[in-house]
Amino acid sequence: MAVLLFAEVTDGHLGRDATAKALTGARKLGPVTVLCAGARASAAAEEAAKLSGVEKVLCAEDPSLGHRLAEPTAALIAELARDYTHIVAPATTDAKNVMPRVAALLDVMILPDVIAIIDADTFERPIYAGNAIQTVKSSDPKKVITLRTTAFEAAPEGGNAPIETVPVPADPGLSAWVEDKVAASDRPELTSARIVVSGGRGVGSEENFKLIERLADKLGAAVGASRAAVDSGYAPNDWQVGQTGKVVAPELYIAIGISGAIQHLAGMKDSKIIVAINKDEEAPIFQVADYGLVADLFQAVPELEKKLG
């Protein structure tokens, strides 16, 4: 068995947390070769080579791979797939875009959002927004897998793998990148933060959302949001936590003015400690909260910020 791990590379940088967590899962399947692809990928490849347990790093550099476009990236991975039994990636939006395309090019099913590896053919994955966990056995000759990063510990540094350059297939020219809109932030990244503070519709406005952000900054936390808060324009889309947003499992998750719909719980219920602040004592969020505070957030949140010293 041999595993190809498609590393998360954005603008030439390695998405270290996501890649290192997927590496831990990938190693259960066999020796791991990491693929770093991009217009620039050599710095990412060097960083990936230092992760403990990597056998080899493949570096694919070409302008066509510059913006994580699905068509050239999937063509590259499908080409390299010949030498591997398992093709694995962390379940990021980039990988969710690319990996099903890879699977179809190889005429195999995709195994998305895997949370446990039973054996080389058998995996566990959540379905119905995490309301059920399915064990599936694949009969395909190759497995194409995305791993949910919250289910795996990040692999440590300490490796020194050799780096090899690989040729890139010709650009199919089907799509072109136009623009990225990325909000710059000094806060920790949502999916790897130790603490996440999230606000919901109860927060009431974009202006009021500053309350959530201030509390987060006091705690050195990332900021999350419910879909209702994003849809209402209080928070940007990349803050959404849930079935269709990001899946997080921090040590501490503080849900403020969030009712606790199953689609939201799907993205945070594996957090170690959950705190809920909501004025409705019947809100379903209290069923998953370790510590629930029934209170008006406009009083409780500033008070909490102050008392954190």
């Binding site: 954005t10 913006h67 476009l69 990021t92 939006t93 980039d94 875009n97 020219g173 089907l174 799509s175 072109a176 990148w177 136009v178 623009e179 990225d180 809109k181 990325v182 909000a183 999916t191 940007p236 889309n237 990349d238 990001k246």
Partner: peptide, 16 residues
């Protein structure tokens, strides 16, 4: 497109 980092705009040839 709604992606992890925010928003990405791409132009695709039709059919798509």
């Amino acid at each position: 497109r709604e992606v992890d980092g925010g928003l990405q705009t791409i132009r695709v040839r039709l059919p798509a």
